[in-house]
Amino acid sequence: MILDRFWAEARSAVPTLPVAVPEAWAFGATAAHADELLTLVLDCAKTGTASAMQDVKADGEPVPEVGQASVILDSRGQPRAVIVTTAVDIVPFSQVSAEHAYSEGEGDRSLAAWREIHERFWAEHCQGADGFSEDMLVVCERFESVFAP
């Protein structure tokens, strides 16, 4: 299995990674998003991501935890990178910080661009029943890319 081989290679390079293969996932809601955001990770421009708390709940996913490893997939489902979560904050959309916006690496990396990009994204792709709002809770995750062959 490709994921098992990738994880073995990652653990060989970074022996502190856990033995068990972690969750593998792609950024965004479309193939184009997945590849665009993965490229930002591979270029070391993206060290943060954000999820709507209502989507996390709708998907039945746990909130990320500090120290948690993830395998990042490209649009074809191929493993391309390993990230480790370094911080998690849950805040209303209107209180996401400029520092977090910058960490996501998108657009001009400003808070204004982050808000525009994410409001549009969640208005179109939010799975939660409440949809987008200024006071919706956002899971702001910071991470370190630890392996990207």
Rank of each mutant, 00 (worst) to 15 (best):
E61W: 00
L73M: 09
I72P: 03
E119C: 08
A29T: 10
Y102C: 12
D43K: 12
S94D: 11
D135Q: 05
F121V: 04
C140A: 13
A81P: 05
A24P: 01
F143N: 02
V41S: 15
M136Y: 03
A31N: 15
G128W: 01
R76D: 13
Q68W: 07
R5Y: 11
H33C: 07
W7R: 06
E119M: 11
A31R: 15
P15I: 08
Q54R: 08
M53G: 01
E99T: 14
E9L: 14
V88E: 12
L40C: 04
V66A: 08
A112Y: 00
T86R: 11
Y102I: 06
P18W: 06
A50R: 02
G28N: 13
E9S: 15
Q95V: 03
T47M: 11
S110T: 10
A113I: 00
P64T: 02
P149K: 07
A52R: 10
D43G: 06
I83H: 10
W122L: 01
D74A: 02
T85P: 07
R80T: 03
L38A: 14
V82W: 05
R5K: 15
A32P: 01
D108K: 04
T85N: 12
H100E: 03
A58H: 08
R142C: 04
M53I: 04
T47F: 07
F132T: 05
P15M: 08
C44Y: 14
L17Q: 13
A50T: 11
G28R: 11
E104T: 11
C44W: 12
S51Y: 03
P92W: 15
A58Y: 04
E36H: 12
H33P: 06
P62T: 06
I117W: 04
S103P: 02
F132N: 04
S97L: 11
D74L: 02
S110N: 01
E104V: 09
A26V: 10
L38E: 13
F27S: 14
V138Q: 06
E124Y: 00
L17P: 13
A8N: 07
A112W: 00
C140K: 03
T30W: 13
G131W: 01
E65A: 14
T49P: 03
D135E: 05
D135S: 07
A26I: 09
D35F: 04
E9I: 07
D35Y: 05
V138P: 03
R5C: 09
T85Y: 08
E61G: 00
M53K: 04
G77Q: 03
